[in-house]
Design a binder for these strands. Structure first.
Lengths: 214, 214
DNA sequence: ACACTCCAGTTACCGCAAGTAACAGCTTAG
DNA sequence: CTAAGCTGTTACTTGCGGTAACTGGAGTGT
């Protein structure tokens, strides 16, 4: 008896929560990450305290929002990562998936990674520093697991895989961030360049001779 | 006439500026990056408006502070990068320099990269998103220059070097960040692992057979 | 039918930090 | 002696995050 009631209530609460998140999403994507709680509440057609009842504080709202997008991204990445293909191909397709995602929805990306970018001066925006790191961490751990699971690294493989997981994710992230800002080349070229880096082309390349200053 | 006067004034203004930056540094390192302008002013023995006269706004103060540390770090990295040694050795020593720096002064590091970490909830902290990216960008560009200058990459070398510069910096940064948080291994091991990654060990490793689920 | 309890929702407020205006003293030039 | 031009102050505004306390309506027990 109470259970069904509670379920009903919880259902409606969950629906509400989803609506609120979607409203927040819209506002954040429109106004940039500096969107105020008031603005988000207004977009949802309600007022601040309700947001606080649902999400505790601004961090909670942000975390929920970030989780949505992060989960979606991670799912896409997992698909590319787990494909039954040669390793280089998997690596390239994972890189490409990530870059395609940030290319397709740069607003979302900037919100997740560089939250305080669109606001007016003095606009603190979300305390995203606390949440953007977890996004990258999750990706790094995930990648580490896949590496450890599928690549034979000999002794100490677990630690090595984790280092590599986080390192590769960071490489992808930083290169993608730079690329998104400057667009110096096509996505495919970027993917190839990064894969080449991971494939040891740096080690294989020769020293340059007769450079300037020598 | 006016010039000498101006020079004098500018000199004293510069000294003042440096004092203020040092005070800000102390406060930020003590109270975390959520330090308020009031607190910084108090530490410097003055009041807010003076800070604003010198730095315009909080972002200006932060930028100046970040520049100090970034310049110092970049100088150290340049030394390692320009050393007359084998490439692998240079890479390892650069990685180690960076990691040693963030290990020695994690507060500074966290301030530069994850500013909103130490504050109370609701404490907006510096809008560091706007400044931490430039730090990494500068490192990436710098590294790209060195790569382009010293490594023979064939056609398209300039773009490739830039991709790699930003990618490697991102790898270093993300791995360092994770490592600083969890300390899963010694610095030397981390350096070795990352260098191994850059040296193509990922490509060279064999597929793992008989993993779980297969 | 009536009181009682929930609960979404509201208004009105607090605290606090960024940033600014207006004023006060000191030093120096004319 | 006065007029700039400093550095420094106090006291304020604005705007955000967050909360307390009230309001109105939907279901429920008697």
């Amino acid at each position: 008896m109470d259970t069904t009631q509670r379920t009903d209530q919880q259902r409606s609460a969950d629906r509400r929560r989803r609506e609120l998140l979607e409203a927040a999403d819209r506002v954040v994507l429109r106004d940039g990450p500096g969107a105020s709680m008031n603005a988000i509440a207004a977009e949802a057609g309600i007022t601040k305290p309700i947001l606080y009842r649902h999400f505790g504080d601004k961090g909670g709202l942000y975390a929920a929002l970030a989780k949505r997008h992060t989960d979606a991204l991670l799912e896409a990445l997992r698909a590319a990562l787990d494909a039954p293909a040669e390793r280089r191909e998997r690596v390239e397709s994972t890189l490409d998936t990530y870059l395609a995602a940030i290319e397709a929805r740069p607003q979302v990306y900037r919100f997740l990674m560089h939250p305080a970018e669109g606001g007016q001066p003095g606009d603190p925006g979300f305390d995203v520093g606390k949440y953007s790191a977890p996004v990258l961490r999750r990706m790094g751990e995930e990648l580490a697991e896949v590496i450890e699971e599928r690549v034979d690294l000999g002794p100490g493989s677990q630690q090595l895989a984790r280092v590599w997981g986080h390192g590769i994710v960071g490489m992808m992230h930083a290169a993608g961030d730079w690329w998104l800002g400057e667009r110096p080349c096509s996505r495919a070229e970027l993917v190839r360049s990064l894969a080449d880096l991971l494939w040891g082309r740096l080690a294989a390349a020769g020293d340059r001779v007769g450079g300037p200053g020598f």
